[in-house]
């Protein structure tokens, strides 16, 4: 259950970005996680919700792009997605492929909303 620590690190990243953007509210955070990263997406979502509950970040949506590993054929240089550890190259049928991605755990994006215009501004328009 290391997903709790990972969720916490995602929230640290969000908080850091928000400090650069005063007046913004985070709505959604996107991360890319490879199937070989050893992270369970459901456990991560659960941890994420538990950690944000009753905090200023409550309701923040976590968008996990769970990515299949990719390999590159050493014989014909074709890159392909690996399903069920089937390492056969769809290009040349060879079995001489090296894994080039699949254990990533990276930030992708943050969706922010600007806060309502300040109270003084609203008042003057009434």
């Amino acid at each position: 259950m290391h997903e709790m620590g990972i969720a916490n690190s995602i929230l640290d990243g969000v908080a850091k970005e928000l400090r650069q953007r005063p007046g913004s509210r985070a709505v959604k955070v996107g991360v890319r996680i490879g199937e070989l990263a050893g992270v369970d997406p459901d456990a991560l979502s659960f941890a994420f919700e538990a950690l944000t509950l009753d905090t200023p970040l409550a309701g923040l949506v976590l968008d996990v792009e769970y990515r299949a590993p990719r390999s590159r054929c050493r014989d014909c240089s074709r890159e392909f997605e690996v399903r069920n550890f089937e390492l056969l190259c769809p290009g040349c049928g060879g079995v001489n492929a090296e894994c080039i991605s699949g254990d990533e755990m990276e930030f992708a994006y943050l969706e922010v909303e600007e806060d309502e215009p300040c109270a003084a501004g609203r008042k003057s328009s009434e």
Binding site: G13, V29, E106, F107, E111, E113
Partner: peptide
Amino acid sequence: MNRVPLEGKVLNENA
């Protein structure tokens, strides 16, 4: 709504 790119590893402190 405004989408901004975020970079870096999630476990960047450990990294």
